[in-house]
Computed example of a mutant assay.
Amino acid sequence: MTAVVIEDGKVLMLDQDTGEPRSYSLPGGKVEDGEALGEALIREVREETGVDVEVGRLLYLCDNVKAHVIHITFEARRTGGVIGNVTEGADTRPIRGVEFVELGELPALGFSDLFVKLCREGFPGAGSYMGPKSAIGL
Rank of each mutant, 00 (worst) to 15 (best):
D63Y: 15
A40C: 03
R77Q: 11
D91T: 06
F74H: 07
V5Q: 04
R78F: 13
V86A: 06
V31R: 14
R78N: 07
T18C: 10
A126F: 08
R120Y: 04
A108S: 15
P94C: 15
V82I: 14
E7R: 14
T92S: 13
F100Y: 15
Y60K: 07
F74M: 09
T49F: 03
P107V: 12
V4A: 13
D33C: 00
A108E: 08
L103G: 02
F111V: 02
F74P: 01
Y24C: 07
N64K: 10
V5E: 04
E48Y: 04
L41C: 09
L41R: 07
S23W: 03
R78L: 10
H68L: 13
G84I: 08
K10G: 05
E47A: 14
V5Y: 05
I70Y: 04
E35R: 08
G28P: 05
V4Y: 02
E47M: 02
G80I: 11
E39R: 08
L106K: 06
E75H: 08
K117V: 00
G84M: 06
S23N: 10
P124G: 12
G97F: 03
E99L: 12
M1S: 09
G80L: 10
G104E: 11
S112P: 06
R77V: 13
A126Y: 03
F123C: 01
T79Y: 09
L114A: 15
T73D: 00
K30M: 06
G34R: 00
R77Y: 10
A126M: 02
E44D: 02
L58V: 02
E7L: 01
L118Q: 07
